[in-house]
Design a binder for these strands. Sequence first.
DNA 1: AAATCGGGGAC
DNA 2: GTCCCAGATTT
Length: 356
Amino acid sequence: MSHAATFATRLLQWFEQSGRHDLPWQHPRTPYRVWLSEIMLQQTQVRVVVPYFERFVAALPDVRALAGAPLDEVLALWSGLGYYARARHLHAAAKQCVERHGGELPRDFDALLALPGIGRSTAGAILSQAWGERAAILDGNVKRVLCRVHAVAGWPGAPAVEKRLWALAGAHLDGVPDGRMADYTQAQMDFGATLCARHDPACALCPLQDTCLALREGRVQELPTPRPGRPLPERRALALLLRDGDGRVLLQRRPPTGIWAALWSLPEHPDHAAARAWFERHVRGDFDAAAVLEPVAHAFTHYRLDLQPLAWQGVDLLPAVRDRADLRWVAAPELGTLGIPAPVRTLLAPRPGHAR
DNA sequence: AAATCGGGGAC
DNA sequence: GTCCCAGATTT
């Protein structure tokens, strides 16, 4: 048996001194906390996640608490974090854990993969970090590191490139010493997030200097290959900000699919004709008395949204629609108990923006 | 294979 | 302004 330094042992040695050892989900490192952190960290930076994680585990400290909570509470705890399907899937997965796995997360790759919101990489991250199982991950950090170390060209999100990266990630598992899988997984992510960063990686301090092909070939700056650019379409919509005599705001639950699914938001319509038609069927008041507020620009990954708020005060719902489950008057203190899109929450904040 | 799904950090 | 982040799911 050779004792030559491997990809894994080099990263592990670097990890001892330079890794992150004080992240909140590491103390204590339970399966539930690892799972929750991995879901929150999908496409979301560590710095953003930390306060959400702390608040979430304080309110819902284990699988059974999560499974027993109303979806609105889960969405409220997720409000502002984005990609709300993660919260809905997390909630559904917790219920499945109670029904099928005795209220615990299953210690099995296929069983984890079968839970909503857990894909191949997240399953590997949970198995390795929660139980020390020998499983690979392939997140943005690992993709970047592997693309450089092995000089893999092509956008890492392309299926063919991703397949090659999974093979490389799997091959490196053989070099992980027994009992070190949790640290190895953490080491890869810390290494990619801090030393082998997207901009200006610290190659002079890198433990992989003598094996990194990108460094040898002078291609560190160009790898990994950026995602192909696409034009962003722009969509416009009207947001109806209705307040009753008590200053409560009318919120509407969004449909179960699409953007901001199942969140509470302002009634939204593509144009004035649609807005007026909805208003006249639902509201006792004068549509033309609306105040025109400052537009809100919001950028998604795949399009831009320009929201034009129209505001009324002292209106009421028509009797025929007062008992609709998807419409409710909400007082300011209740806003924190509901999942509300970030730009809408901003719009409803104490400084509501001035009419123009 | 491509599109969908948020919000913000860092440049 | 840009790109992308501890990706998964749907089409």
